[in-house]
Every structure is written in C-alpha cells, then in structure tokens.
C-alpha cells in the first residue's frame, strides 16, 4: 500500500450537503446574476396575522403569486419542500374556545364523483368554508366542525357541453363534520402530531394501516395531502411534513402549475400508478401552500389525454372565529357510531 492509498483509506465519510443551506447558496448564485432588488418578500402570513390580532380578528389571506421578473429554474422538488418547511410560520393562535376557519375552492371532474353513474365529464366546483373546533371535544359536543359548501358554476371539461343537471346542483348546504376514528384532523389531535421527520414519516405510515402494507411515496403523498386539506397544521408539524415528503424517492417538480383559484405556483408531487400526477402547489415567492392538483401524465394508463386536469384545490384563507354556524345534528352522530369522513 503506498502513501496515497493510506490517504484515500483515511478519506472521511461526511454528512450530505444540507438541502436548506444548499438552496440558500443556489439563491445567492441566482441573485448574483440579477439586477439588484429586494426579491424575497416578508412573510405575509406573519405580518398580516400580527396586525389583525391587534384588533381582535385574525384574517390571513394566502398571497397571490406575483410574476417575478426572472423565473427560478431547475429547482429540485426536495429544495422546494425544504424551503416550504423553512418558510412555515404559525399564522394563527386560536384559543381553545374558538374555531379555526378555513376557506377553500375545489374543482373536480364530475365523472369521478362516486355516487354518480352517468360518467359525465364536466368540472364540478365547490367553495367551502369549514369551522373546526380549536379545543378538545366537550361533553355534549358531538361534532368536530361545520362545513358550509356552495356548489358554484360548473366548468366545461375539454370542450364538452355542460349538462343542465350540473346547474341544478348549485346552491349552499351546511353539514356537520365528524371525523372518523383514527382519521381525526381536529386541531387538538393535529397539533400533537410529531414535529420531526422520522416521526412524521411513521405517522404517514400509520394513516394507511391496516389498508396498505407498505407506505409507497405516492401513498405518503396522499396522506400528507389529507393532513393539509381543510385543516390548520401548525408550523412545526407542517415543516416536518414537508421535510418527510422530501425523503421519498420519485418526487418531482413541475415549475409552473395553477391551483383551483388560478394562482400560479410550483408543483411538487408524484405520479400515481394510474398515470395521474398529484402535486402540492407552493407559492414561488413565499413557499406558502396554495393548494394541490392532479393531472393526467400517462394517457394510456389514465385513459384520458395527457394534460387533462382531474382535480384541483386552493386554500384561500385561514382565520379564527369565536363561533360557528348552527347545524342540525342527527341522532346518529350522537350515538358516536357515525362519522362524516374528511
């Protein structure tokens, strides 16, 4: 063995480049090529939340994505998730006697609605407001929250005519939300979720038990999406969730996608076995979550042209309220044996 072999043998194993630090170094490099300007806006969430608290009302709007003069290019999915993890801040601090209010938009291909057998294609759209209790369920309290759902004007699917029945569904209804056992997403449960990456991975795995034997990246994505949908995940858990997602192989980025509200962002996600790409959408400036979407990427597997939108959502607003709308609670919920799902 010669001297160089000795040195090679002593070559230390080192930890990988921290993705967050790496992303910052890359940013610095990109900045060096741009005209000098303030590029990163302050976290609108924190500022808006702070000001609104002072007047006793918390109202937070997810900022619309501006059109930056220079587009970020070739960012990796893991980098986007790490940035989103780093940018996560607690937007609201509800008291136990209050309600978390989440406003969302949804667009779904009607043919996927389970109760319909007509297989008609048009986009069914919902505008929802949910009120979720911030404290533990009290004695005599049978529900976890209330959902006010308005079916808004439908949209045409790939130029196909919209059936008349689509307009007949328009209107508003209010229903209770009762989470099913082991699928609770109420705030007291959600804020006890792990705040570390390993713990969060284990939780995503647990969400699929006993249905799935192995947590695939795609199943992990679906579980993560579920945790983020019409809930308020505190910053620590949100950060852990994004970082946990970044650890799965096969996650890719789509640089310019739109959420259900038409806001542009960066899509990060996986392709399902049936040829549909599912992705979370992040604001390219603040890395705040805008929504999610699923779109056909493999025409053969999905039996639809590539690029066809399957569904999209947008998370519009998170706020806190002292009360929720009254809703009729059926006796079946009082028995504790019924739940409404998500």
């Amino acid at each position: 063995m010669n001297e160089f072999d000795l040195i090679n043998e002593a070559r230390p194993e080192v930890a990988p480049y921290d993705p967050g630090v790496k992303a910052l170094a890359r940013d610095r490099l990109l900045m060096a090529g741009r005209p000098r300007r303030s590029w990163r806006r302050p976290y609108t969430f924190a500022v808006a939340g702070g000001l609104a608290l002072a007047v006793g009302l918390v109202m937070v709007k997810v900022p619309p994505a501006p059109n930056p003069p220079h587009e970020m290019k070739l960012l990796s999915a893991a980098e986007v998730l790490h940035r989103a993890a780093k940018a996560a801040v607690d937007e609201i601090e509800p008291r136990e006697d209050q309600y978390i209010v989440v406003k969302t938009l949804q667009t779904t291909d009607y043919s996927l609605v389970p109760y319909d057998r007509s297989r008609k294609h048009y986009y069914l759209r919902f505008k929802d407001t949910v009120w979720l209790r911030a404290g533990e369920r009290q004695r005599g309290q049978f529900v976890d929250g209330v959902r006010e759902q308005t079916v808004i004007e439908p949209l045409a699917y790939a130029g196909q005519p919209i059936p008349k029945s689509a307009y007949e569904d328009m209107g508003t209804r209010v229903d209770p939300i009762v989470y099913c056992k082991n699928a609770e997403k109420d705030y007291p449960t959600i804020k006890r979720l792990p705040t570390d990456v390993e713990g969060m991975r284990a939780h995503l795995d647990a969400m699929w038990k006993p249905k799935a034997k192995k947590l695939t990246p795609f199943l992990a994505f679906l579980a993560a999406r579920e945790l983020l949908w019409q809930t308020y995940l505190p910053a620590a858990q949100r950060s852990a969730l994004y970082q946990a997602l970044s650890t799965f192989p096969g996650i890719t980025i789509d640089e310019e996608v739109q959420d259900a509200a038409g806001r542009k962002g960066i899509g990060v996600g996986f392709v399902s076995p049936d040829g549909v790409r599912w992705e979370l959408i992040f604001d390219r400036d603040t890395y705040a979550l805008l929504g999610d979407r699923s779109v056909v990427v493999d025409a053969k597997a999905a039996k639809a042209p590539a690029g066809t939108l399957v569904a999209a959502t947008a998370q519009l607003e998170i706020s806190v309220a002292d009360s929720a709308p009254k809703v009729k609670i059926d006796d079946k919920f009082k028995s504790g044996r019924w739940c409404t799902g998500t």
């Binding site: 080192v14 480049y17 790496k22 890359r26 490099l29 990109l30 090529g33 741009r34 290019k73 070739l74």
Partner: peptide, 17 residues
Amino acid sequence: PERFASLFDRYADEIHR
C-alpha cells in the same frame, strides 16, 4: 446568467463533500 445554476446543480454536492 441563471443557466449557471445548472452547473451548481451538477457539482455543488461534490464540491461541498
């Protein structure tokens, strides 16, 4: 200039290591 970021993507891990 932003194309240079691709060079970073290619070699940043290696140089950092």
